[in-house]
């Protein structure tokens, strides 16, 4: 009896594990739009001591949830810098990046984003 084999069996490189792919996809796709809310996780003043001044400023500001736009305005830093600092803090669990707003964001949030953008 003849056996046949699929010419290109679906496979993925063995060193890339499934959970890893998920993490990679998440991080490589995570765009922090100006409306994304960021909040500090369990603020601890001791932690500020070891941080760069800009990082510490984001960590402190986000004790009250802030949008990316508000952080850029409030700290007078370009959006790209805020995205880097938030990414670094989120990677070590110091801040939480809220999920993207639902299809219809609430009016209050939109007004805050608008104000933040106006002030950039």
């Amino acid at each position: 009896m003849t056996r046949t084999y699929a010419l290109h069996a679906p496979r993925r490189p063995s060193r890339v594990r499934p959970y890893g792919i998920t993490r990679g996809r998440t991080a490589a796709d995570r765009f922090l739009g100006v409306e994304r809310l960021i909040s500090t996780v369990e603020f601890d003043p001791q932690r500020v001591l070891g941080m760069l001044p800009e990082t510490a400023a984001v960590y402190e500001a986000c004790r009250y949830p802030r949008t990316i736009a508000e952080l850029a305005t409030g700290l007078a830093l370009p959006l790209g810098v805020i995205r880097v600092l938030v990414g670094d803090l989120a990677a070590v669990g110091r801040v939480r990046i809220h999920p993207p707003a639902a299809d219809i964001p609430d009016r209050h949030l939109l007004e805050r984003v608008l104000r933040g953008l106006d002030n950039l």
């Binding site: 990679g24 991080a27 490589a28 796709d29 670094d88």
Partner: peptide, 9 residues
């Protein structure tokens, strides 16, 4: 990103 690099969009 999966290998631990930081990606910023």
């Amino acid at each position: 990103a999966e290998r631990g690099g930081t990606v910023v969009i």
